[in-house]
Amino acid sequence: MKTNFNFEDGDSRPCLADLEPGQRAIVEAVRAPGALGRRLQDLGFVPGTPVSLLRRAPLGDPGVFALRGMQICLRRSETRQIRVRLEAGGPS
């Protein structure tokens, strides 16, 4: 699987953008500072929350994520800001 390196802070740990359609993960941290970070947390992206990628748009971006009983579209640029722990087993 390809990993999106975040070159700015050299953080190569997995982020939400790394998910394959059907794959599930647990949110570990929101890296984005300021308003974006606060909004992502207000939407429920807080540590310990399960999240899964349902599908990507026909052109590859954005993706639809299932989280706290809702489906939310996020672009790759935003999902790079959410560090996750990938669930074992890959896409189901």
Binding site: A35, I72, L74, R75
Partner: peptide, 9 residues
């Protein structure tokens, strides 16, 4: 202003 694209389906 860096308004993130978040949209509920």
């Amino acid at each position: 202003e860096g308004l993130p694209f978040t949209m509920e389906l």
